[in-house]
Design a protein around this nucleic acid. Structure first.
Lengths: 241, 241
DNA sequence: TGTACATCAGTGAACGCGCGTTCACTGATGTAC
DNA sequence: TGTACATCAGTGAACGCGCGTTCACTGATGTAC
């Protein structure tokens, strides 16, 4: 199925090569345009995805793109999907590098931190693609947005992390949604803010800072309930309980 | 000093009115253009700040803007500055609504949470201005970026929050930078993610969700050191200690 | 196996758009004497 | 107090740009008989 070949070889993890033959007219124009779009996104973010330029790079007239995409936003969407996939792959690299300890609780936390680390590092390594993955040009069709069979997704990995925390007894199911939102938001904020000129962190301090933040985020998720211990009362969420 | 009148009356907090008289040619063109730019930003984010349109709204030729701004990015920058100020004001509103308890530790945490709540609510109430405040069109000149005398800034309020935590004995000074980065990132991530179609949270669940996340973030900042208590070992930041 | 035809994937010229920015200019204001 | 002149804040036409998208078209492929 040529329509499924979305691997972009950004990271060495990816080993699937695109077919070299062009059996029919161009043969694989849609994928070629998406790949060109990915390059543009890497170079300049979502705004740099330009239909005419993508066609130019593929060596095809601008009009040809309209055989495969209804309009520009559809191409951007396809690129965003590739970006999400690449991000998930980057997260999986971090997961693969864990060394399991005997302790289930410890390992569950390490899983969460590895997922977060992959997220943030992807944002640093591929800022343009990261921004594109989270741009939303028009609401995604349910059908289009659905992941391919077995494709990893950043959100899926987060969910897996939190399930692990629940299983290890570190997170109450009643706090699941809040924990998920907080974890995602915190990691996303790091990814957005740290690379921006707003913060201007000296590069050599970045790894330690990121790691410290990830630990601190994890701590918030699994901290014991305020009622059971701790020196001060944190009030419970407004309007709840 | 007419150059200082940046109040935009987005919130009723602001009570300074712009002068109605136009004593000299236009008289206050720079501020008028900035205000028009703010409106454009509110309507469509940083990309919607268009020099020609701003001039059109003020009723002046497009060229006139070049008497007051070297080029478009300078106008965007000025608008971003207004956005930062408006955000800080919104945060101050939340601060003003606190009811102090006797407990210093509790109040310090409430201060932090109020600051975060203002940040997130501003992002919901003024998404375009929020995005503009954090866009960075060309690196800011040191001189230009410096705040006006006594102007509040979002980062300044965050720093005040954390100082309060340190004073109350809830945060170790050695963790200050990590805590600051985490708090900012988490709150910024909530502000970015929650309003986006990616999450699609039902509006009636938003206040509780936000509040829960803020508590959870605060918890992470002030959680006791892993070495002293807590059921599992969180490893210390990579490469440190 | 060869031919007629429908279908499909591409071409190339052209459109309208709104933008940022430039240029030479004009008219109002402030100032020196 | 009046006049000459420099300065300053605005005008309006024009430029080039690259974009997304349309249109009528052409040439290659697949298919029925």
């Amino acid at each position: 199925l040529p329509g499924e070949v979305y691997d972009v070889n950004i990271f060495s993890v990816t080993s699937v090569d695109l077919p070299e033959s062009h059996p029919y007219h161009h043969g694989d124009l849609r994928n070629a345009l998406v790949e060109a779009g990915v390059e543009l996104a890497r170079e300049g973010g979502p705004g740099a995805i330009v239909l005419r330029e993508a066609a130019r790079r593929v060596g095809v007239s601008a009009t040809a793109a309209y055989r495969h995409f209804h309009a520009l936003p559809d191409l951007v969407q396809a690129v965003a999907h590739v970006g999400q996939l690449a991000m998930a792959r980057r997260m999986e690299v971090e997961l693969a590098q864990r060394v399991p300890s005997g302790d289930a609780a410890h390992d569950a936390v390490e899983f969460l931190i590895a997922v977060g680390r992959g997220y943030v590092r992807f944002a640093f390594e591929e800022p343009g693609l990261f921004m594109t993955a989270f741009s939303h040009p028009g609401t995604t069709t349910e059908e289009e947005a659905r992941n391919e069979e077995g494709e990893p997704s950043p959100y899926g990995l987060l969910v897996t992390s939190l399930d692990g925390l629940v299983d290890a007894g570190l997170l109450e199911a009643s706090e699941y949604d809040i924990a998920a939102t907080t974890a995602w938001a915190a990691v996303h904020g790091l990814s957005t803010l740290l690379p921006s000129p707003i913060m201007a962190i000296p590069p050599e301090q970045l790894p330690d800072l990121i790691e410290g933040c990830l630990v601190l985020i994890a701590r918030g998720l699994i901290a014991p309930r305020p009622s059971s211990r701790g020196p001060q009362n944190l009030r419970s969420p407004h309007g709840t309980g």
